[in-house]
Design a protein around this nucleic acid. Structure first.
Lengths: 340, 340
DNA sequence: AAACTTTCAGCAACCGTTTGCCAAAAATTG
DNA sequence: CAATTTTTGGCAAACGGTTGCTGAAAGTTT
C-alpha cells in the first residue's frame, strides 16, 4: 500500500496508479473496467473499489488513440445566431447524450474554404459530423465524406446521408391556404441565393402557384436575419401582391415589425407565411402563420443516422435521404385577400 | 518515394507517413510542423510540402496525450431548452473560436449528482469548464474546481472565478420605473427555489421596494418556461398588485399570452417587467420591458477568464468575480398604475 | 494419475505525437 | 588545421490506455 496521500489537487489517477495500488497489472485493470467477463469476479471487485477510491476516470484521449473512436460528434452550423439552430442543437444534444456521445458545436460562420478546413481539423477529434446548411460544393462534400462519416441536414447530394425537412410539401399547403383566402398574386421573399433550401422552396412555390392559377413573384435575396425583414417589408409594400411566403421566420418576424411601424395591417392588408416555426413565431405580433418544421426531430434523426452509419462501417451503402414532413400552422398573420 | 496511391479513402496520414515519404524522422517532422526554428529551412519546406500533399492533419488525441492539453472547453448548461443560453453559447463559441479552442456543449438537465458525474468524465476531455446555473452545492463546486479549471456564470462561491450578471442593479432601475408610474404593490414572480440568481433578485427587490415605500410580494416558484407563464399570470390576476417583475423573460412572455387570452390588458391593467432580454422580448406582444443582460458578453468574458486562468496556472490567485451591469429597457409592457 | 481444457493474469507491442538527449555535420574561431 | 561552438537530425522514452499472445494454475475428463 502506497503511503502517498490521495490528494485531490494532484493530477488525476491513471490506470497505472490503480494497478500499482491494487497489485495487479495495468492490463488487468483495463479489462476489469471494460471487459468484465475476462477477469475473476473478486479481482474485479478489488480493482473497482480501488479505482473508485482513487477517483479514477479513464482518459478519453488515450482511449481514443487505440480505439480510434473519440465518442464525440461535431455539429457544424453556419451561424449560431440563427434561432433555427436552437432546436436543432437541442435535438442533436438530446440524442447524443442518450448514446453517451459528446457534442462539439462549431460555428463555421465564414467562407466555404474555412468550413472545409475546419472540418479537416476536426476529422481526428470527432467520429463524425453533422452539417447544416453547408456552403460547401457538392464536390467538396463528397470528397469530405470519404474521409469522415457525414450527415447533411437540408442538403441533398447523391451518396451523402441526409435529413431533409420537406418544406416544399408544406409550401403546397400554404399556397392552398392562401389561394382559398382569395390571394391571386403571391410573393416569395427569397433567402440567400446560395441556399439549397431557398431554391427548392421557390421552385415548388412557382410550380404549385401556376397550378392553382396564382401568380408567383420572387424578390431579390435577403439575409436570414430579423434586421433584413425591414427591407423585405418595404419591398412587399411596394409590390402588387396581397400575400407573401417568406424564406424563414426570422425574416418574416422582422417584416411584421416593419409593417406595424408603417401602419400596414397584417393580415388585413397583407398576409404573411413564414417557414420553420422557430421560437418566437407563436408569440410575435400577430402570431405567425408558418410552415412548422420538426426541427428538433431533424437533429435527433441526423444523430441516429450518423450513429448507425458508424456502426455499419464506411462501406455500407449510404442510407437514402430521410424526408421529414412539414405542415402549415395557421395563426394570425394570414387572412382574406384585400382587393387592391 | 513510395508507390502506394494516395487514396483518400484510406485512413488519415500520420506523422510517420510524412516521415517515410520525406525521408526524415518522425521527430523531425514534428518539429518542422510545430517548432519551426528548430529545423533547417529547406528541410522544413520539403516536409511541409509532403504534409500538404498527404493531407496530413495532426491527431489531436495523440497530441493531447503528451501535451496534456486538449484545446477544448466544456460548456455546461442546465437546460438547452432555455433561450437564455442561446446568447451565452453564441458568446462562448465566438471567443473560443477566436482562441482556436473547440466547444463541447453539454446539457446537464438531470440531477446534481449527474451533473457532478458528467463533469468528472469530462475532466480529461476538456481543459476547463464553464458552468451556468449550476445545481451543485458550494462544497461540490469547490472540490470540483480543485480538479479542473472552472468559471461559473451567475453563481458566486468564494474562490471560484465567476462572471455574474448584475441583475439586482437593474432591479433598482425597474423598481424606480414602476414606482414613478404609480405602482405601490409589486409582485415578484419567482423562479426555481434552487436558483441562486432567483434568490438574489428577490432579496434586492424586497429591500429596494421597502426603501421606495412600495410593497413587495413574492409568488411561489415557477419553472422557467413559456408554459409556466400561464399559471403565473393567473396568480397575478388574482393578486392585488398592479405590476410584476418576473424572474425571466421566458415566464414573462408566457404570462403575456395568458393575459391576452383572459382579456387583461398590458400595460393598462397590469405592468410586466422581465429579466434577461432574450430573443423574442423585443417582438412579443406587447414588446416586453425588461432588464437587458449582456448575455453574449457574459459568455465571452467567461471564456477569456477561463483561458487566462489556464495560462496563469492553477496556483495563481483566483480572479475576483466579474460583475456585468444590466440596464432597464423600457418597451411596451409597463405603464401607469391602474387604480384598483 | 496423466492428459486435456479452461480460466485468469501478465508481458509487451501498439496507437500518434512530443521532447530530452545525443551525435554527426557544419560553421566559426584561434 | 585543430579546437570549439552551433545547427540539425535521429533515437528512444514517454503520455495513458487496449489487446494479442503466452503460460501458470485450476478444473475436468478419462
Amino acid at each position: 500500500m502506497s503511503t502517498e496521500p490521495v490528494s485531490s489537487s494532484t493530477r488525476p489517477a491513471t490506470i497505472h496508479d490503480v494497478a500499482r495500488e491494487s497489485g495487479f497489472a495495468a492490463s488487468t485493470v483495463s479489462r476489469a473496467l471494460s471487459n468484465p467477463g475476462r477477469v475473476n469476479v473478486q479481482t474485479r471487485e478489488k480493482i473497482l473499489a480501488i479505482a473508485r477510491a482513487l477517483n479514477y476516470t479513464p482518459n478519453s484521449q488515450a482511449r481514443a488513440l487505440t480505439s480510434g473512436q473519440t465518442r464525440s460528434i461535431a455539429v457544424l452550423v453556419s451561424d449560431i445566431t440563427n434561432p433555427f439552430y436552437f432546436g436543432l442543437i437541442r435535438g442533436t444534444q438530446q440524442q447524443l447524450k442518450a448514446a453517451n456521445y459528446l457534442q462539439m458545436l462549431v460555428d463555421t460562420a465564414e467562407s466555404s474554404d474555412s468550413e472545409a478546413a475546419t472540418i479537416d481539423s476536426l476529422r481526428r477529434s470527432a467520429d463524425g459530423a453533422i452539417l447544416t446548411a453547408s456552403r460547401l460544393s457538392d464536390q467538396q462534400l463528397v470528397s469530405l465524406s470519404e474521409r469522415m462519416p457525414l450527415v447533411a441536414i437540408n442538403r441533398h447530394v447523391p451518396g451523402i446521408p441526409a435529413v431533409i425537412i420537406d418544406t416544399p410539401f408544406g409550401i403546397d399547403q400554404a399556397l392552398d391556404h392562401l389561394a382559398s383566402l382569395g390571394h391571386r398574386r403571391i410573393t416569395y421573399v427569397s433567402g440567400p441565393d446560395m441556399s439549397w433550401s431557398n431554391e427548392r422552396r421557390w421552385q415548388r412555390l412557382e410550380k404549385t402557384a401556376q397550378k392553382l392559377g396564382v401568380q408567383p413573384v420572387r424578390t431579390r435575396e435577403y439575409a436570414p436575419s430579423l434586421a433584413s425583414g425591414a427591407a423585405a417589408a418595404e419591398a412587399m409594400i411596394n409590390s402588387e401582391s396581397t400575400a407573401c411566403v417568406v424564406f424563414n421566420d426570422l425574416i418574416a418576424i422582422g417584416m411584421l415589425e416593419r409593417f406595424r411601424e408603417r401602419g400596414v395591417r397584417v393580415p388585413e392588408d397583407i398576409s404573411v407565411v413564414g417557414c420553420d416555426d422557430i421560437f418566437g413565431a407563436s408569440f410575435c405580433n400577430p402570431p405567425l402563420t408558418t410552415l412548422t418544421a420538426p426541427i428538433e426531430r431533424a437533429g435527433r434523426m441526423a444523430v441516429s443516422m450518423l450513429l448507425s452509419r458508424l456502426e455499419a462501417g464506411p462501406d455500407s451503402p449510404p442510407p437514402p435521404p430521410m424526408l421529414l414532413p412539414t405542415h402549415l400552422t395557421v395563426r394570425k398573420s394570414t387572412g382574406p385577400a384585400r382587393q387592391r
